[in-house]
């Protein structure tokens, strides 16, 4: 725990799924891949999780090459955050999985997607760095 990067409190509104996040991964053959994910969840001070409902290039890539970069946006002030992450593990049960699964089920059940749009797993990442992107005027 000690010495690792801690998520600042002000990033928390960006981890609630209000604005889709963008994630860049890279396959072992060197091909980069960009995609959007609906939500990056905060797990603890220095871990986040991504949900997946379908197997994708992103999921395959991180199992080959664990380094990824993610962009999340705070819906309150539109501040944009860049996180360097390293894939750590996949959880398919337990409190974190349940928490993400319950949130997904709550939404899916309102759009007729119960049982279809199901959480397959929660990929947990260690946060290597976090910074506010210098792309915006303050």
């Amino acid at each position: 725990m000690a010495g690792t990067i801690a998520l600042p409190q002000e990033i928390m509104p960006a981890l609630q799924g209000a604005v889709p996040a963008t994630i860049v991964t890279c396959a072992l053959d060197g091909e980069p891949n960009v995609t959007t994910v609906s939500q990056v969840f905060s797990v603890d001070q220095n871990h986040v999780a991504l949900s997946f409902q379908f197997f994708s290039k992103t999921i395959r890539n991180v199992r080959e090459n664990p380094y990824v970069m993610v962009q999340v946006i705070n819906p309150m002030d539109f501040s944009t955050w860049l996180l360097e992450l390293r894939y750590d593990r996949t959880e398919t049960e337990g409190p974190l999985f349940d928490d993400m699964d319950i949130k997904l089920e709550a939404i899916a059940s309102m759009t007729g997607m119960s049982g279809i749009f199901k959480l397959r797993g929660a990929d947990v990442y260690e946060v290597l760095s976090v910074k506010k992107a210098p792309w915006r005027r303050d």
Partner: peptide
Amino acid sequence: RRRRVVRMAAMAAQMGYVAAVR
């Protein structure tokens, strides 16, 4: 059903996302 607290923070965006999947 799950006997658990459910706390949602940005439902419109998430429903839009799931609707797109549907």
